[in-house]
């Protein structure tokens, strides 16, 4: 059924990474946890999502042909359900962030340089735009049109809070990192550098290690 490791996920644009189905599921789980704990919307892992969906469809097709009640089929079904849970929880977590930060996410998308990858999947982008339009229409119809003409505008970029990149996160290190600069918290303190050993765990500001989350060198927990 799914024994042939033929899944390809092209990550970070140019380089093609070949993943076995097992590795694919693990990267989905990683993306899920990072998304859950990161204060901002991370880059969409569209390739992973597509490959997982493909795997699930393929498996379900096979299961559809199999006779029910079989122990083996039952085990496959359970696995499919578990993977589907992670997948939908991941996508839902992203939707919730889009609902929370939509003006900033759309602004980032607007100012994105040509060729840079989008942090949104095409579906998410459509969702964000629609959410923005609906919010604006709702504000206008419910309140703003009843206001004096000079008060009929709300700048959503100012009205909706930005993600707080200064918030603290817990992380586990996957690949050793050296010379991470930790900024002082108070005037009496000084900045210092730390090394992040493999498998060590830390509590630190998201901002300090955000690039390492994006590159996959650390996992949020």
């Amino acid at each position: 059924m799914a024994e042939e490791p033929d899944q390809e996920g092209s990550e970070a644009g140019s380089e093609e990474v070949v993943l076995t189905p097992a590795q694919l599921i693990r990267s989905l789980e990683q993306a899920w946890m990072n998304e859950k704990f990161a204060p901002e919307l991370l880059e969409s892992k569209s390739e992973i999502v597509e490959c997982v969906v493909e795997q699930l469809e393929h498996m379900e097709e096979n299961l559809g042909r199999a006779k029910g009640g079989d122990l083996k089929v039952g085990i496959h079904r359970m696995e499919v359900e578990r993977i589907r849970y992670v997948l939908s929880s991941y996508l839902r977590c992203r939707l919730r962030k889009i609902e929370k930060y939509f003006p900033h996410i759309l602004e980032k998308e607007k100012t994105r340089a040509e060729g840079d990858p989008s942090i949104l999947s095409p579906e998410e982008f459509a969702f964000a735009k629609e959410y923005m339009a609906n919010t604006e229409a709702h504000f206008r119809n419910m309140a703003l049109k009843h206001m004096p003409p000079n008060l009929q505008k709300v700048d959503l970029l100012k009205a909706v809070a930005k993600p707080n990149l200064d918030s603290f996160v817990f992380l586990r290190v996957k690949e050793r990192q050296e010379n991470i600069l930790v900024e002082p918290e108070t005037d009496e303190q000084r900045e210092y550098v730390i090394d992040l050993d493999e498998d060590s765990q830390h509590l630190i500001r998201y901002k300090t290690i955000a690039p390492l989350v994006a590159s996959g060198a650390v996992n949020l927990i």
Partner: peptide, 11 residues
């Protein structure tokens, strides 16, 4: 202590 970083291995 208003610290900026903590190592929390084994948690």
């Amino acid at each position: 202590q208003q610290e900026a970083h903590a190592r929390l291995d084994n948690l």
